[in-house]
């Protein structure tokens, strides 16, 4: 695999649970870095990760992950990827240290290396003396940390994190995101982070893949996605507001929302406000105030998802 080759590539991938189609004809080529998988619950994010890991068979289509063909048990691929599952999962009857050491041994690490790495990644994940306690006694936050340590112990090239902030309190969430950011941006690992929380993805990732109804509806850099939706202006109008709406529509200015006499109008790509004033003149209204409003990733995502439905 060359440096700029995609970390994974899918061609018409379809995955079904019985008769229900969870991923429908998905095609995408994803370059390295920190990738966010965004979408509402049930969109197919976890299914996509499991299909990439070979845990779910493809009903149709093909693909590759880190140069290894998709499907099957693919031991060589799994030595190079780490996986932090969404749900509560642990090796029963083991302490945090033993579970992490065991995860390393299962990845083919020699005993001494697995022991040393287990201590290292547990300290990195913030589990100090607690690493000698049975995982079953851990709080939700500690379980998430030990899952992260288990996914990292064999030093994967690609890390799949499925809803890593699930069940965490605000402080724990920020700490977890900080760890993910460090791994992705300072340590050179490729990270695929699945979340339904926009801020998690916005805070940690460079690119975003938006999944909706088993399809990929958008895949691009986060800043491009936000920018491609341009900027908006919050406008307070005096006069015939319906005439102003019609004049905006005639000039291709979408009204995002309206509350009484105040409305948010989406501006053209370059953020130019001139068409707004032209619409006011045409409608014979007075603009009492015009304030710029930045389009966030949330607005962009809602727009993308809204169009996809």
């Amino acid at each position: 695999m060359t440096a700029d080759a995609p970390i994974f590539e899918l061609h018409g991938l379809t995955v079904r649970y019985g008769t229900r189609t969870a991923l429908d004809d998905v095609s995408v080529a994803v370059p390295g870095g920190a990738i966010g998988l965004l979408g509402p619950n049930g969109a197919g994010k976890s299914t996509l990760i499991k299909a990439l890991l070979g845990l779910l068979p493809a009903a149709a289509g093909s693909g590759q992950v880190l140069g290894h063909p998709l499907g099957g048990e693919a031991p060589q691929l799994r030595r190079r990827v780490g996986y932090m599952p969404e749900r509560d999962a642990f090796f029963p009857g083991l302490t945090g240290f033993q579970a992490t050491w065991y995860a390393g041994r299962l990845c083919g690490m020699p005993d001494a290396d697995a022991r040393r790495r287990a201590h290292e990644v547990l300290l990195f994940a913030g589990l100090e003396e607690a690493r000698y306690r049975d995982v079953a006694t851990y709080s939700t936050g500690m379980k998430q940390r030990v899952k992260l340590a288990q996914a990292l112990v064999h030093d994967p090239d690609l890390l799949f994190l499925d809803e890593p902030t699930n069940g965490l309190d605000p402080k724990g969430r920020l700490e977890m995101l900080d760890l993910v950011r460090t791994i992705a941006h300072d340590k050179g690992l490729h990270v695929v982070l699945s979340s339904h929380l926009l801020r998690d993805v916005e805070d940690t990732c460079d690119r975003v893949i938006v999944v909706q109804g088993g399809k990929i509806v958008r895949h691009e850099e986060i800043k491009t996605l936000a920018h491609s939706h341009g900027d908006a202006a919050s406008v307070r109008v005096a006069g015939d507001i319906e005439a102003f709406r019609a004049a905006c529509a005639a000039r291709g200015l979408a009204v995002l929302e309206q509350k009484d006499r105040e409305m948010q109008v989406k501006l053209p790509g370059d953020g130019e406000t001139r068409p707004l004033f032209e619409a006011a003149v045409a409608a014979g209204v007075v603009l009492r105030s015009v304030r710029p409003v930045r389009v966030t990733l949330e607005d962009a995502l809602m727009d993308v998802l809204g169009r996809a439905v």
Partner: peptide, 10 residues
């Protein structure tokens, strides 16, 4: 303990 997912993703 949902450990099968942990085992078989390795």
């Amino acid at each position: 303990a949902n450990a099968l997912e942990l085992y078989l993703s390795r």
